[in-house]
Design a protein around this nucleic acid. Structure first.
Length: 866
DNA sequence: ACCTCCCGCCATGCT
DNA sequence: AGCATGGCGGGAGGT
């Protein structure tokens, strides 16, 4: 056992600077292995850069392990080439890279460019910290130290940290300091991002882009209009781009000031990029499409090629980091025209709200919460965040602790660091490594397995690879833990938990970005897959019809998968799919709930943590259940859009105040379960299709979220029967959701409804349904019921059907009201929400139509690496 | 020849 | 002013 994973607790490493070598080695070593003692550390001097040649680094986490085992020296060697050598043991490992020659060690010399790649660097970085750090421990990260240890320029570290920050895996404490959160909040974050992505209609945007391409290619006359709006919408929505950064509660950036720089870029780009994966059915996103979407695109595409190129460059940077996290992997999409580089999501599937994985966790709910929170956060962010440090939230406590710890460390100057790491990483486990890493990965895997591998890991790996959802099983555990963590402290898993994750703790609100608005209408896309996959031309065959798109979709998705799979076949990818299906809908819920204003959050218990209390809460909640509605704790994420800020801030604030209190109590449960997805199998089955698809699009009226909706629905629909609720409900739900979503963004949520949050929830539930569907499909659904009630509700069906049902919590008022308010809010205030709303309607109406998108075939080849 | 993407200049913004 | 951050894109390594 030992797994490290469990180890979460380890301290991050601390490092003495100087010791760098030590550190790493030590750390690494420790982590892993403990094993080998290192040799002495070398002292490498700390300085980083200098080192150049030899740097050590490790490849993946696995590497870490390996490395750790190895010793510093080894590392160095590794650096060169890699670990493999070290690993030696593993034959496989070796493979890798070229290891080279000997590599021995000495050589350090020049590392080739590859050795200096960001992906590798990221693996090294990740190896230093446990995936699930013990919150109690301080997990501070000193950028300077890290840079030294890894022998890279600080600039590179920023690249990594910025991406990690976008996933809330780290949060900035202060100037040169970041706090490591690991994957505890990852599911929440992903759930939030998914929700936001849905709201932004990224799926639609993707389709539009593809469509355009086709048209161009063909010359099709385009179908027209719809697109435009969409596109435009996007920009508008996001602001084009942007939305702000989505924060999690606990995690938020602390130093706002620090952060301040615009949040443009990397951070935001990273989140958006992730959103694209979460929203698109196939879960395969080509760089080209991503770049276009991230750029405001609309117009001119041509305009700048340079701009486009730059965007692509940045996406590579982000992709490298995400690949190191095993969230995505490179693949090539082959279209008629040619192949395009693309990335496939290999991370957990997430349901919008919840994280997919953890079904078990009741806590899971957090997702929902998260969403909400995010909204709230947005609001918060707007305010609080800016404020800089905020202590708000629970996290604050944590932070304090951390800071204290850090201080201590500082004091001691040399801490020896104790530890750091563990190995961690499950992720690694699972992950397949990118091509580069692949080798390493393999090795690592081996090692891992050998070592302890906890079941999870193993499982994951296997699973993942196999195609299923990786995450699920394996993750579950971890996930669960995570969830727990996140969740309010409700759960305490092992005991570990301690404090609570700061991140979690915090609150929750979500904000939507613009949601709303912008966009005028929603489109339905059915074939999500198509989107992804498709490329160009195509046309092909099939058609599209749409109507039933729902069903179609599901299939499609599957198909898509298949394709992928095919390519992947070898690879493991298949799994993904399942998850994808699920996700769709939820966002709505989130919004609602969220309410908790920031303040609350802060207050929240969360902060405290007390688990017990929280637990109690849970229980209560559950009982009450209304579940859904209620609660949330901690999770909040923000997504601030600029717009939002503009719009809503005020309102938000106020709202927060109002609502604030209440919310805390409620928790929402998400159904993690749904998220679970494991089901995959079905997916697999589904798969095959011809390469070409046509995707029909429908335009839906719904404003915002269209995308989301479809997703959920489709699968369900399609697949099944199982999910009864879906259809009808789905439509309705969708609408609602969308609106909500839009609304939600509205941020206002916060504002208006004081209590408000709740109200939404119902809807949310509806939304959630999707997940459920998924679940159903898979079958797993049932699993947990802990949350069950809530979940179930969540799932949505209830939603659809029952919306009424909602439990108490939900707010009293009708959701409708709420909804309205939301809308208004948003609209009213700042932007033309109203108008937007209107638009929606109009749009929707108008738009309704179906589009066809020709799909192409896609072939995805994964390669591991190259 | 194209795909990746490292490297580091230099702008930005906090201190 | 100085330093921390990080946008950005030239241009080179890898296929």
């Amino acid at each position: 056992m030992d797994n490290e994973k469990e180890n979460l607790f380890f301290e991050p490493h601390k490092r003495g600077l100087m010791k760098t070598p030590l550190k790493e080695s030590t750390a690494a070593n420790r982590v892993l292995a403990e094993i080998q003692p290192d040799f002495g550390p070398l002292t490498t001097p700390t300085k980083p850069k200098e080192i150049s040649p030899g740097e050590p680094w490790t490849p993946t986490a696995n590497l870490k392990m390996l490395i750790s085992a190895v010793s510093p020296e080894i590392r160095n060697r590794d650096q060169k080439r890699g670990l493999f050598d070290n690993r030696n043991g593993l034959p496989e490992a070796k493979d890798c890279l070229h290891e080279h020659l000997s590599g021995d060690e000495y050589e350090k010399s020049q590392p080739s460019r590859k050795e200096k790649s960001l992906g590798l660097l990221c693996h090294k970085f990740l190896a230093r910290y446990p995936n699930y750090p013990n919150p109690a421990v301080n997990n501070d990260i000193c950028l300077d130290e890290v840079a030294e240890e890894l022998n890279v320029e600080r600039r590179r570290i920023y690249d990594i940290v910025n991406v990690l920050e976008s996933l809330h895996m780290v949060s900035r404490l202060a100037k040169n300091r970041y706090t490591w959160h690991g994957r505890h909040n990852l599911n929440q974050t992903l759930g939030t991002l998914k929700s936001v992505g849905e709201e932004n209609k990224y799926a639609e945007q993707i389709m539009m882009i593809k469509k355009k391409e086709y048209e161009q290619e063909f010359d099709f006359s385009k179908s027209y209009s719809i697109e435009d709006p969409l596109i435009k919408a996007n920009p508008s929505q996001n602001g084009h781009s942007d939305m702000c950064f989505v924060e999690l509660p606990g995690v938020e950036f602390r130093a706002a000031s620090v952060n301040s720089r615009k949040d443009k870029s990397l951070r935001v780009m990273s989140q958006k990029f992730v959103m694209l994966f979460l929203v698109s059915t196939p879960q395969i996103v080509s760089l080209e499409v991503a770049a276009k979407i991230l750029i405001g695109e609309d117009h001119v595409e041509d305009l700048d090629k340079s701009k486009f190129k730059t965007k692509i460059r940045r996406l590579y940077d982000i992709a490298n980091v995400l690949s190191s996290l095993d969230l995505i992997k490179k693949v090539h999409v082959t279209e008629e025209r040619g192949r395009k580089p693309a990335f496939k999501w290999t991370g957990p599937e997430i349901s919008p709200n919840t994280s997919g994985l953890s079904p078990v966790l009741p806590v899971a709910p957090s997702d929902l919460e998260v969403r909400r929170s995010s909204k709230e956060n947005c609001a918060k962010n707007l305010f609080s965040t800016r404020g800089k440090p905020n202590f708000t939230r629970h996290p604050s406590l944590i932070k304090l602790v951390k800071s204290i710890e850090s201080d201590r460390r500082k004091i001691n100057s040399a801490p020896s660091s104790p530890i750091k790491t563990n190995k961690a990483e499950a992720s690694q486990n699972s992950a397949p490594f990118p091509s580069k890493m692949a080798q390493l990965a393999a090795i690592c895997k081996m090692q891992l397995e050998e070592q302890s591998s906890e079941p999870r890991k193993k499982v994951k790996l296997q699973l993942a690879r196999s195609g299923h959802c990786k995450p699920l099983a394996p993750l579950d555990t971890p996930a669960n833990t995570e969830l727990e963590m996140t969740a309010p402290s409700l759960i305490q898993p092992l005991g570990v938990v301690p404090l609570i994750p700061s991140p979690l703790s915090s609150a929750v609100p979500m904000i939507l970005p613009q949601a709303p608005s912008g966009p005028s209408y929603a489109i339905y896309l059915q074939p999500a897959q198509a989107q992804t996959m498709t490329p160009p031309q195509g046309l092909s065959p099939t058609v599209s019809s749409t109507p039933s798109s729902k069903a179609m979709r599901s299939k499609d998705s599957t198909e898509a998968m298949t394709e992928n799979t095919a390519s992947d076949a070898a690879k493991p990818s298949a799994p993904t799919r399942p998850g994808s299906l699920l996700p769709g809908p939820e966002r709505q819920g989130t919004k609602n709930k969220d309410r908790e204003p920031a303040g609350e959050r802060g207050a929240k218990r969360a902060s405290l943590l007390e688990d017990s209390s929280s637990k109690k809460k849970f229980k209560e909640d559950q009982k009450g259940l209304e579940n859904v509605s209620a609660t949330l704790f901690p999770s909040g994420y923000l997504i601030p859009l600029t717009q939002c800020s503009a719009l809503g801030a005020e309102s938000i604030l106020s709202s927060k105040e109002n609502s604030g209190t209440l919310s805390p109590n409620h928790r929402i449960y998400s159904s993690p379960i749904a998220g679970v997805i494991p089901v995959t199998s079905s997916e697999l089955t589904a798969v095959n299709f011809p390469s070409f698809h046509v995707t029909p699009l429908k335009l839906m009226v719904s404003p915002t979220s269209v995308a989301a909706v479809p997703v959920g629905n489709s699968p369900a629909l399609t697949s099944s029967h199982a999910v009864p609720v879906q259809h009808p409900s789905s439509a309705i739900v969708n609408f609602t959701l969308q609106h909500l979503g839009l609304i939600s963004p509205s941020v206002q949520m916060s504002a208006s409804p004081g209590p408000g949050t709740i109200p939404v929830s119902p809807r949310i539930e509806a939304v959630s349904i999707t997940p459920e569907n998924a679940g159903t499909q898979q079958g797993r659904v049932p699993r947990y019921d802990l949350s069950a009630p809530s979940q179930n509700q969540t799932n949505g069906q209830s939603a659809a059907m029952t919306g009424a049902q909602q439990p108490v919590p939900v707010t009293p008022k009708g959701s409708q009201l709420v909804a309205e308010s939301f809308f208004r809010t948003p609209g009213g205030p700042t932007k033309p929400a109203g108008s937007s709303c209107v638009d929606f309607n109009g749009a929707s109406k108008t738009s309704v139509g179906t589009l066809f998108v020709p799909q192409r075939k896609l072939e995805v080849s994964t390669e591991d690496v190259h």
